[in-house]
């Protein structure tokens, strides 16, 4: 009376799903390639003007068209990966590093120390992300290093909150009590007992923040803070193209699509990694 069983274990993943997963796994490799070699592989110069080919629509020669100075948009996007993604990656790394350390300490130590740390984080959290980043850059000067630290700083309290709640949950487990009763030190319990159970969360947090860092770098460069023309950072491409939105929409639309694809792709990659990293049976956090 009953046919083959339904449910997640019943059917092996189809060819489409497998190809999709492969694509998602290859995605960061492509981004890394662009960051490392992008400026070397562009078909045209990303910065040189060509008065003979201004505002060309997408076509066989200029794949994504050209801007008002005749610069090839495809080349500018490829070359723009580095000034957009490198600061995003670096700032995410810094934010997560500080956030994890702070959240782990607050969540595990608890009590008064937790209160003090987290109220300080709340103060930082009360500033809108973009305003806080602009404030820091305005104070310390607009350069690449400040930009990276400003965005990392913005992420710090957000990441700390997440990691703290995970650490609090994990600290309640008896294997932590067992370690304490054995006389293990605080650092051992934090980094050897608790941290390994949080990798899944950290990876997901990293990819989500990376996506938001790409947008932040783009927004800041759109506002003219951080990277300046003629660097083809993606945010700058959107900004420079904006006046031409009606005349030559491709100048704005393609950079926007690329930003969106990178953001979504990074989140999907994080999900795949999380599933690989934390087998369901070994996962004790949802």
């Amino acid at each position: 009376m009953a046919g083959p069983a339904p449910g997640p274990t019943a059917t092996p993943p189809g060819i489409g799903a497998r190809l999709g997963r492969l694509g998602i796994m290859l995605f960061p490799a492509l981004l890394l390639f662009l960051v490392a070699f992008g400026p070397l592989v562009t078909p045209f110069s990303a910065t040189a003007f060509d008065p003979a080919a201004t505002l060309r629509p997408p076509g066989p020669t200029y794949l994504l068209g050209t801007d008002e100075f005749g610069r090839d948009l495809f080349s500018r996007i490829v070359a723009g990966a580095q000034p957009t993604l490198l600061p995003a990656l670096a700032s995410t790394f810094i934010g997560i590093l500080f956030g994890t350390a702070t959240g782990l300490a607050a969540g595990f130590l608890g009590g008064r120390r937790d209160e003090v740390i987290m109220r300080a984080m709340d103060v930082l959290l009360s500033f809108p992300a973009l305003i806080l980043a602009m404030l820091i850059i305005a104070t310390l000067g607009a350069n690449m290093v400040t930009l990276v630290f400003a965005i990392g700083f913005v992420f710090w309290p957000r990441s700390a909150r997440l990691i703290r709640s995970a650490a609090m949950e994990l600290a309640r487990h008896e294997f932590v009590d067992a370690a304490r009763a054995r006389g293990e030190g605080t650092a051992y319990i934090m980094f050897r007992e608790i941290l390994p159970n949080m990798w899944g969360i950290i990876v997901v947090d990293f990819t989500l923040r990376f996506a938001s860092a790409v947008l932040l770098v783009a927004s800041l460069s759109y506002l003219g803070i951080g990277v300046s023309p003629p660097t083809p950072a993606w945010g700058l491409l959107v900004k420079e193209g904006q006046p031409l939105l009606q005349l030559a929409p491709w100048v704005v639309i393609f950079p926007c699509i690329v930003i969106a694809v990178v953001s979504v792709g990074s989140v999907m990659f994080g999900e795949v990694i999380r599933r690989r990293l934390t087998l369901p049976d070994r996962r004790i956090l949802a």
């Binding site: 008896e174 009590d177 390994p196 159970n197 070994r282």
Partner: peptide, 8 residues
């Protein structure tokens, strides 16, 4: 169950 670290 709880007394054993699932990652070890």
């Amino acid at each position: 169950d709880g007394a054993l670290n699932p990652q070890r």
